[in-house]
Simulated assay, not measured.
Amino acid sequence: MAHGLSRIHADTRTMAFLRSFLRCYLTGAAFNTRGMQNIGLMYAMLPGLRAIHKDRRELRTALKRYARHYQSHPFWTPCMVGILLNVETTISAGHFPPAMLAKVRDTTSYTLSAIGDSVFAGSLLIFWALLTICLLLSGNPAAAFALGLAMLLGLQVFRAYTFTCGVRQGFKFLERLKRWDLINWGRRVKYANAALLLWLWILIWPRPYRWWEMLIGVAALMFFARYVRTGLLSRVLAVAVFVGFIELFPWIEATARNGFGL
């Protein structure tokens, strides 16, 4: 009888954790300027917290732990929620001091946010966008669709996997993430993005090709990129000047030819 009740309790908790995972897709819906994603985090944590803390007073206390400021990359939210559910289970068993949770949680969320901005927003999303554009311009819409579908499904697998590992391993899962060396992988993807950008230029560059025009374009891009990276030049201004130069280049070329009598 006791074994059956334990099995039912485990199944109930599993379903509650599954609802918490699904709610991770909605954490940005209640974004606010004061707590950022804190309301969304509370919403995602609620089913799991109800399964962990049966006493209403303990449940209210647990919810208050997530009412404060929270901000992280949305792709890492399932991982974060899984880790926090693991910690709440440990707190409920009396093996983890609740006072330590806030500091550890903030450190983890900000670290994951930085990795997410670098690897996902700064590398993989740009890789997907550039490769999709190149495939479409080269007449391969089916390949572009397949790429988008693969990236979408891969993201869902990543979210489900990191959530499961977070629930099972808690903060220990961060050691495995460290071994993944995601920052360096993000840097490698950026090298691929540079090659894709060159491919894009070849696809859209007016025919016939003239090597010196391409050389001027690459030099101008490197020049602007240097000062944008150091913060001396706004990205918006750099793009505006670069696009304006491209639009005016035929007129500049024609004026130079007429001036030199070519």
Rank of each mutant, 00 (worst) to 15 (best):
F127K: 07
H73A: 13
T77E: 08
Q169R: 07
L177C: 10
N258E: 11
R34K: 05
I133G: 03
A10Q: 13
A29V: 13
D106R: 14
C79E: 14
F249P: 05
I204D: 06
A102Q: 12
F158G: 03
L41S: 03
C134E: 11
L22H: 09
L182D: 05
T132I: 02
T61R: 15
V243W: 06
W180Y: 07
I39K: 01
G4P: 01
F75S: 11
V87S: 06
L124K: 14
V236N: 06
L49G: 07
I8H: 02
V119L: 13
W185G: 00
R56Y: 01
T27P: 01
E213C: 02
L233E: 07
R65M: 12
S234I: 08
G231S: 10
L248M: 03
Y227E: 12
C79R: 12
I115E: 06
R7Q: 10
F96E: 09
N193S: 13
Q71S: 09
E175R: 04
S6D: 07
T162V: 14
E213Y: 09
A114E: 05
R210I: 12
R56T: 00
Y227W: 15
F173C: 04
W128F: 05
L196P: 04
A16E: 13
L215W: 02
W251L: 02
D55T: 11
T107W: 03
A114L: 08
P78H: 13
F224G: 05
M100G: 00
L5H: 04
S72I: 15
A143F: 01
E247F: 05
R7G: 04
R57P: 00
A99P: 00
G82T: 12
T162F: 11
S138E: 08
I39Q: 04
A150E: 02
L59M: 06
V119I: 11
P97I: 00
L5T: 08
T27F: 10
I91D: 03
I252T: 06
P98I: 11
L215C: 05
L125H: 13
T230G: 14
S123V: 13
Q71L: 15
R56W: 00
S123D: 14
S118A: 11
L203E: 13
V104S: 10
Q71A: 11
M80R: 13
R57L: 05
S6Y: 05
T132A: 08
F245G: 15
M42A: 07
L200A: 10
V104R: 13
A194W: 15
R168C: 02
A160K: 11
R159Y: 11
D55Q: 12
R229F: 09
A129L: 06
L135E: 08
T162W: 09
G170R: 01
